[in-house]
């Protein structure tokens, strides 16, 4: 059973901007999944559609098998979402915000109060329960939204850049908290533009850029790819087939005289050339193949991180 299935999802805003260009995504039940991408990639748009805040242009979304179109009442009750921007009434007291949210989901008042107390305590907000939300710090506001998203016990929790504006110590505490929630069986999807955060937390990852998914794999294989470099080698003699090398797995023949080899971080180009020569293959020229992922991460990290400054 998939916690989330997205098929061919398109979104064109009224301005004509194509924010999502046909996204496919599947997230297993129990997974801790990262949706990674630079600013403007379409992450929030995607989450907005899943949680019913943005109308999709085309495509299908199912939450635990329930369509957000035909069975939206069930789909919505299984989902909790923490948006990127604060969207509570800043004049309301913290406790009221969470209790009311439970009410919208039909949770009876007594249970709503209990659950609110539980999550406000877990997230360190209990002593602030009577404060108006606008009195909270940025990190506390973020945690308030997490408490609000959990109060009806969703099976799937989606967080849009949950650690933006949260200092490093609290960020760690939040990671631990989310780990616990995930261990107890809640599927979690988070978006981020910090690779480090995804690496620390998530098992699987999709990378979105310019409204398209450009990578969807386990975190492990993504890191392996990021830490290796691919070279294109021009050979003196033609080869009948790609050579089989001992320490290099990904060898692809592009042309009788051109091959492509992935060099993991632990190995050097010398190792590669040595192995090829041992098989009587002479390299005439080589060039570095541009790695789209690396390029993407340069783009993601090169942007000034205004939230970190704030």
């Amino acid at each position: 059973m998939y916690a989330l299935e997205i098929e061919n999802l398109h979104k064109t805003y009224a301005s004509g901007l194509q924010a999502l260009k046909g996204i496919d995504l599947k997230v297993e039940t129990g997974d801790f999944f990262a949706l990674l991408g630079p600013n403007g990639a379409g992450k929030s748009t995607c989450i907005g559609i899943i949680s019913g805040l943005v109308n999709k242009t085309a495509g299908k979304v199912r939450i635990f098998g329930h369509s957000i179109d035909d069975e939206f009442l069930v789909a919505k009750s299984l989902l909790g979402s923490v948006p990127q921007e604060f969207n509570f009434n800043t004049f309301e007291p913290v406790e009221e915000i969470v209790v009311n949210q439970a009410g919208y989901y039909g949770v009876p008042a007594r249970i709503a109060r209990q659950e609110t107390e539980r999550y406000l305590k877990q997230l360190g907000l209990w002593q602030h329960r009577r404060s108006q939300a606008r009195r909270l710090s940025g990190g506390m506001k973020r945690r308030l939204m997490i408490a609000r998203a959990l109060v009806h016990k969703p099976q799937l929790l989606i967080l849009d850049e949950p650690t933006a504006g949260v200092d490093i110590e609290l960020r760690r505490a939040m990671w631990d908290f989310l780990d616990q929630i995930n261990d107890r069986g809640t599927t979690i999807i988070l978006t981020t533009h910090y690779l480090e955060e995804a690496e620390r937390m998530c098992r699987n990852v999709a990378i979105i850029d310019g409204g398209s998914i450009i990578q969807n794999s386990s975190m492990k294989s993504l890191l392996k790819q990021l830490n290796s470099e691919t070279f294109v080698l021009y050979l003196r003699e033609e080869l009948a087939q790609a050579p089989r090398l001992e320490r290099f797995d990904n060898v692809v023949q592009l042309d009788p005289q051109i091959i492509e080899v992935e060099v993991p971080e632990a190995l050097s180009i010398n190792d590669l050339v040595g192995e090829l020569e041992a098989r009587g293959i002479v390299v005439e020229r080589m060039r570095n193949k541009v790695n789209r992922l690396e390029e993407l991460f340069v783009k993601m990290t090169a942007k000034p991180d205004t939230e970190m400054l704030a």
Partner: peptide, 9 residues
């Protein structure tokens, strides 16, 4: 904060 109602069933 109208979104609080919009995300809920």
């Amino acid at each position: 904060h109208i979104e609080e109602m919009q995300v809920a069933p």
